[in-house]
Design a protein around this nucleic acid. Structure first.
Length: 321
DNA sequence: ACATGTGTTGAT
DNA sequence: TCAACACATGTG
């Protein structure tokens, strides 16, 4: 029997890995409108990587594939739990097309072998040929050079490192130009900004434990699942102020604004909003996982999910904000 | 399997 | 700085 995921919950890489849209959606999620673990990239096997927002399972959003098993996603779930928002978005960005290797966090940026500076380059634009964009002291500068070239040559839909708004109006992202050891320093910063996974992971219901298959004999799954289900103390979780956080990440500023203020042709924003609707109180109540699939996901029962879901309401979110 | 686009490497 | 190859990833 074929598993069905509502089409409006499915976003292919092509759509999702458009940073502005992706980040906007993720921000909504990460800003406590939904717990961090509700977004998961799925490794799609032969069909390629897909990032799907869809089915809630074990407090995590999964997109089901007929051949998928829960184990397929344990890696992603763990990854999301162990990474800060910034780090995770970086990994997502890196996974986008053609951007899978290398040392730089940014698209179009590579460390030059000669002088060690950061070289920006964009390939196969306007006809063919590569475009050398120069070398820079910092990754960020090179990344911006790439962004601008990308926008110029590929239009407003270009996949960019930073939010396109930064290039549309006066406010360029305030790049903290540090000395040499950028990477390390940034990593430190990231750690400081780390969103504790537990502080976000509030949807977990105790009774879900019984729902889960705890006796698969697979250690990895078990640890992952139990991690997810670790009871969370909502009250003492550190409230993350989204605004505060924005200060440190220029590229994710005014994402939502960008959607309304910038006319972006053929980007359908409905996808994003439709997706977000999922995380509305009502939306969740009505999203019956049983109707989402014709059979339990990966053989794991989801029968309790809908009742559990109802407890994941704005209460959880507002308590944080 | 093929197309695409970026990382890497070497030459100039 | 330029050019070309390597290769991961998406797509039909």
């Amino acid at each position: 029997m074929k598993l069905q995921t509502p089409s409006h919950l499915k976003l292919s890489l092509k759509n999702v890995f458009e940073p502005r849209k992706l980040i906007s959606m993720l921000l909504k999620i990460l800003n406590q409108e939904a717990p961090f673990t509700e977004v998961s990239p799925g490794i799609g096997g032969p069909g390629g990587t897909k990032l799907i927002f869809g089915t809630r399972l074990h407090g995590t959003t999964f997109r089901a594939r007929e051949e998928d098993k829960l184990e397929t996603y344990t890696k992603e779930v763990e990854e999301m739990e162990n990474l800060s928002k910034e780090e995770y978005l970086t990994t997502l960005r890196r996974r986008s097309s053609g951007f899978s290797r290398g040392v730089s966090k940014y698209r179009g940026v590579a460390r030059h072998h000669h002088n060690g500076r950061w070289e920006a380059r964009i390939g196969r634009v306007s006809g063919n040929k590569y475009l050398y964009l120069g070398t820079y002291d910092t990754q960020e500068e090179a990344a911006m050079a790439y962004d601008m070239a990308a926008i110029e040559h590929r239009g407003p839909n270009a996949v960019t490192n930073f939010d396109i708004n930064n290039y549309m109006d006066k406010n360029m992202p305030k790049i903290e130009v540090k000395e040499e050891e950028e990477e390390e320093e940034e990593d430190v910063e990231m750690k400081q900004e780390l969103i504790t996974p537990n502080s976000l992971n509030k949807v977990v219901q105790p009774d879900e434990n019984e729902t889960h298959n705890h006796h698969q004999g697979d250690n990895q799954i078990e640890t992952s699942v139990s991690k997810l289900e670790k009871p969370i103390n909502t009250s003492d979780s550190q409230a993350m102020d989204p605004i505060e956080e924005h200060k440190h990440y220029p590229w994710d500023l005014c994402l939502d604004n960008s959607f309304s203020s910038i006319p972006i042709p053929d980007i359908s924003l409905e996808e994003a909003s439709e997706f977000l609707r999922l995380f509305d109180d009502n939306g969740f109540e009505e999203l019956d996982i049983e109707f989402t699939f014709d059979e339990p996901f990966g053989g794991v029962s989801t029968s309790h999910s809908s009742s559990s879901l109802s407890t994941m309401t704005s209460d959880d979110c507002s308590s944080i904000n």
